[in-house]
Simulated scan of single mutants.
Amino acid sequence: MGLSEIIGEVIPLAIMAMALGMDAFSLGLGMGMLRLRLKQVFYIGITIGFFHVIMPLLGIVLGRYISYHFSGIATYIGGFLLLILGLQMVISSFKSENDTFVTPIGFGLIVFALTVSLDSFSVGLSLGIFGARTAVTIMLFGFFSMVLTWAGLLLGRKVQTWLGSYGEALGGSILFAFGLKLLLPI
């Protein structure tokens, strides 16, 4: 395979990775409205980048052996998880600061990263069916999602300081809206 063929494959994969990363950016913007420290922002970005490597890799592997019917299931699971996460954030914004239920640490971070990366699993299924280059695909997906998540989280931190206590409710609303968008495609 020549250089032009490789470039011809990398450019569309990079565009796809940026599109999936923009989803992580938007969701990071919502989650960034929690009162996060820079260390948490760093770990969240790394974790989401990691999941954006693992999930499309699993999707590519499964996509080579299984039909495309699983992409719809992944979308519904992602939408449902975003609805729950967003609703919990909105509810916790009305509680005292010590009672916050959704936190991007531990299991909450795993759920958040899994939710954000489910769409890359679906894309991985499709790419696996079409025989895309696995290493290039997962590296691009991981890189763009990590960097764009950091950008969303940092911007969300700034917006949160402007919005005060209503920032978490707004962030939860953003996650809830993305969940609805996944469940009710318009």
Rank of each mutant, 00 (worst) to 15 (best):
G108K: 09
T161V: 02
L140Y: 03
L118V: 05
Y76K: 15
H52G: 03
G72L: 03
M55E: 00
P104N: 00
T47I: 05
S165T: 13
E168M: 10
S93I: 00
L87S: 13
V41F: 00
N98F: 06
V41A: 11
S126H: 02
Q160E: 14
R64G: 11
L125I: 15
I46G: 03
I66M: 08
L57F: 12
Q160C: 01
G124T: 04
L81D: 07
S145I: 05
E97L: 06
Y76M: 11
R157D: 09
L83E: 07
T137Y: 01
S67H: 06
R157T: 10
L155H: 07
S145H: 06
F80H: 15
T134F: 04
I54C: 04
F42L: 12
A151N: 13
G72K: 14
S145M: 05
I129W: 10
G45S: 15
I77M: 01
F42R: 13
F80Q: 04
I66G: 01
K95F: 05
A135E: 06
T134M: 02
G171S: 12
F50L: 13
G78Q: 00
I105R: 15
M139H: 01
V90I: 12
L57E: 04
F112V: 05
L82V: 13
N98H: 14
G79S: 05
G79R: 09
S145L: 08
S92F: 05
I138D: 02
E168V: 12
I138F: 06
T149P: 00
V41Q: 02
F112W: 02
T47R: 08
Y166N: 14
T115H: 05
L170M: 13
V90H: 02
S120V: 00
V123K: 03
T47G: 05
P104K: 03
S71L: 06
D99F: 11
S122T: 10
G45Q: 06
R157Y: 11
F101A: 11
I129S: 15
G171V: 12
Y68N: 13
L127K: 04
G86A: 01
L109I: 06
A74M: 03
A74R: 09
G142D: 05
V61E: 11
I48A: 12
G164D: 04
G72W: 05
L154G: 14
G152P: 03
A132N: 00
G45P: 08
V116S: 04
I54L: 08
S120W: 00
T75L: 15
